[in-house]
């Protein structure tokens, strides 16, 4: 089982990144092998549609679940279309979130926000 978590820096001891689409990195963790890797997120620098691009990158990682504090509508649509489960992360370190997830303590994300793409000035 593989999960992804948005990260500000490449360290398991830091908190989850507040932004999904514009997180600088994603932690990709395999629960069977217990291997963690950090991948860069090129969508963090995109002019617009970061959520869609980021979701595509994660779907291509053949994940089973995404742990995130929040998620925009377009990104959620991509992730859900790929059959990936979306869980609400806690405001704790990446490691604590992985532990909580493997113990079944995280809930599915209930609220999908409308996205910020109309406020980012991407057409300017």
């Amino acid at each position: 089982m593989k999960v992804a978590v948005p990260a500000d820096v490449k360290s398991l001891e830091t908190a989850v990144c507040r932004s999904f689409g514009r997180a600088p990195y994603y932690l990709i963790h395999d629960l069977q092998t217990n291997i963690s890797v950090f991948i860069e997120n090129p969508a963090a620098r995109s002019q617009g549609g970061a959520g869609v691009q980021a979701a595509q990158i994660l779907v291509d990682q053949q994940l089973d679940a995404v742990l995130t504090p929040r998620l925009g509508r377009n990104a959620a649509e991509v992730i859900q279309a790929a059959g990936i489960q979306i869980y609400q992360s806690m405001n704790r370190s990446l490691r604590e979130n992985l532990d909580a997830f493997s113990e079944g303590k995280l809930n599915l994300l209930q609220e999908i926000h409308a996205g910020f793409h109309r406020h980012g000035g991407h057409s300017k």
């Binding site: 002019q47 617009g48 970061a50 595509q56 377009n74 991509v78 279309a81 059959g83 991407h122």
Partner: peptide, 23 residues
């Protein structure tokens, strides 16, 4: 098409192109 789109309005999921009209 997905890699061409500068606005990331396209994604390829489950052998299908998704189009996001709002972006």
């Amino acid at each position: 098409c997905v890699s061409f789109c500068r606005f990331n309005a396209l994604a390829y999921i489950n052998q299908q192109v998704m189009i996001f009209e709002d972006i």
